[in-house]
């Protein structure tokens, strides 16, 4: 498991900040660099430097605004799982390499492990928790059940969201398009055939077992 280290020691961070300012060419005690100092101040004001400590962040998740107080380094995935208890998206590789953390941001599938939560502000974030309505599975979720599209199930929520983004963009796909369109998700149990059939079933095409 990757190291979890959200809480860095504040004293160390303060030292780092000073080190940064020196490194950026500003010998702060010298009069000559008053310009550099002023520039730094102007940059801070203009571009709003935030952190490294906790800062208020509002995320719109499945249509509902959620207020958080988190450090800039917190990824969207960790904000969902650790702050909001939305544990559908899974933390597996945490390196853009498996797809288990897939969510939909602004209508597009993305890896939540590779986006900072602070960057996702003001965007529509859809997670697997938002798919079912009043306890009734979304047709895509039902198609996963109908087609045995999961075994251990760990990759499933990510797959479901990748499939949803794919179907939103390609409502009438061929099997070849389905295979290519799901190239960003891995399943170590090897349920790819079931997943592809679930996508075809949802699209109302033959191939899904429920339509067979």
């Amino acid at each position: 498991m990757p190291k979890r280290d959200h809480a860095g020691p504040p004293s160390e961070l303060d030292v780092s900040r000073r080190g940064f300012l020196k490194g950026a060419g500003a010998a702060l005690s010298s009069g000559i660099v008053a310009g550099a100092e002023a520039l730094e101040a102007a940059n801070r004001a203009a571009a709003k430097i935030i952190g490294p400590g906790k800062t208020p962040v509002t995320l719109k998740i499945n249509g509902v605004n959620k207020a958080l107080n988190i450090e800039p380094r917190v990824t969207l995935l960790d904000a969902l799982r650790d702050e909001l208890e939305l544990t559908g998206a899974k933390r597996v590789c945490d390196r853009s390499s498996c797809g288990a953390c897939t969510v939909i941001v602004s209508g597009k599938s993305v890896y939540a492990c590779s986006m900072l939560a602070i960057e996702a502000q003001g965007k529509n974030i859809e997670t697997v928790e938002g798919l079912s309505v009043a306890g009734k599975l979304h047709p895509l979720q039902q198609a996963f059940v109908d087609n045995d599209a999961q075994q251990c199930g760990y990759c499933t929520p990510g797959f479901v969201m990748a499939c949803k983004a794919f179907l939103d963009k390609n409502p009438n796909p061929t099997i070849e398009q389905v295979r290519k369109g799901l190239g960003g998700n891995l399943c170590r149990c090897g349920t790819y055939v079931g997943v592809a059939e679930a996508v075809l079933q949802t699209a109302g095409k033959k191939g899904g077992r429920a339509n067979a």
């Binding site: 280290d5 860095g8 961070l13 900040r17 080190g19 940064f20 490194g23 950026a24 060419g25 520039l39 102007a42 940059n43 203009a46 571009a47 709003k48 430097i49 935030i50 952190g51 490294p52 400590g53 450090e71 800039p72 380094r73 900072l116 602070i118 960057e119």
Partner: peptide, 27 residues
């Protein structure tokens, strides 16, 4: 991941002003 300060400038001039004179300080 270590903690870091974060900025999201809207102009290229601001962005360059926020970067550092040596590698490693800012990304």
């Amino acid at each position: 991941m270590n903690a870091f300060e974060y900025a999201a400038p809207t102009t290229k001039e601001q962005a360059v002003g926020l970067l550092a004179d040596r590698w490693g300080d800012a990304e």
